[in-house]
């Protein structure tokens, strides 16, 4: 029987995990919105980000602040290289090629990281202390709170950035139509480069936060596969919506595992987001906040 205490702490945990999903979903949405590419390697970008931080802090032994700055620079460089070498040459190719190249990159990064750093899960350099806080009877981890804070920060930050800054306006123009943007004198290539850099950095932050609790390994990549349903639920368009979607998925998977696991012998936590995803695709493919595109299917 599910008591109210278990229920409340489950919901709080779900909200906090949902923040993490939201953060990863934002990094999906940034790229999809501007370039029309659904990047299946986003989770691997998060994973590589966690490895980069591990590399700078635990292997190079640089001070924490310098290590983080270096990590952000490397992650940005990583996003830029990915866009320039792989996605840019494929412009004008069918969706299948675009999808396969991101899938191929996810295969490659999942394959190459164990070759470089070994197959074992590495202990993450501690950035956030692993303490548990409690309000009344509800207990939650500090890492969860910090990641939820990061997600809120990213959501509000990007919303303000897209609404009120010149660069944000340029990016929104590029989202609208590449050729029109090019015709008004915007360098689409440079804007897309910047979007990929931003997205890689957001993914890295997500990956590092995941690695705080689970260690540096492929868990971040697997978690990002669960951020796909989140991105789809909000329609691959809206950035503040991504946070809400993350919370919805985070809470609903906890509820599903609390109430439905008894009937299915467990495993509902992993599968429920995909059930939601399939339902969204069948009932409302443009998601909760997405633009309804008028097109023939």
């Amino acid at each position: 029987m599910v008591t109210s205490e278990i229920l409340i702490s489950g919901i709080v945990g779900g909200v906090l995990t949902g923040g993490l999903y939201g953060l990863l979903a934002i990094s999906f949405i940034l790229i999809y919105k501007s370039s029309g590419v659904l990047n299946f390697a986003q989770g691997e970008m998060a994973m590589v980000g966690a490895y980069i931080i591990f590399f700078t802090l635990a292997q190079l032994h640089v001070p924490v602040v310098l290590g983080l700055v270096l990590g952000i620079v490397l992650a940005g460089l990583f996003g830029w290289v990915l866009h320039e070498t792989a996605l840019r040459p494929l412009i004008g190719q069918p969706v299948f090629s675009m999808m396969m190249i991101t899938v191929a990159f996810s295969l490659f990064f999942r394959g190459i990281t164990p070759v470089i750093w070994g197959t074992a899960i590495l202990p993450a350099p501690e950035l956030v202390p692993l303490t548990t806080l409690s309000i009344g009877t509800v207990r939650f981890s500090l890492v969860g709170l910090v990641s939820f804070g990061c997600a809120c920060l990213a959501a509000t930050g990007f919303t303000i950035f897209f609404k009120f800054t010149r660069r944000g306006l340029l990016m929104r123009t590029v989202c609208e139509d590449h050729q029109l943007a090019e015709a008004t004198g915007i360098s689409v290539r440079r804007i897309l480069d910047q979007v990929w850099i931003l997205s890689a950095i957001v993914a890295m932050v997500g990956g590092v936060l995941v690695s705080q609790t689970t260690g540096v390994g492929d868990t971040a990549a697997n978690l990002a596969l669960k951020a796909l349903p989140v991105a789809l639920l909000v329609g691959l368009e809206s950035i503040p919506g991504a946070l809400l979607g993350g919370v919805i998925i985070g809470v609903s998977e906890i509820l599903a595992s609390l109430y439905l696991d008894a009937f299915t012998c467990g495993g509902m936590m992993e599968t429920f987001p995909y059930i939601v995803m399939l339902l969204v695709l069948i009932i409302r493919p443009y998601g909760l906040f997405g633009l309804k595109r008028i097109e023939r299917v």
Binding site: M100, L107, I112
Partner: peptide
Amino acid sequence: LNAVFGLVIIAFLL
């Protein structure tokens, strides 16, 4: 092996 497969796909697509 996965890394090699990934590289092969990337090389063919490009």
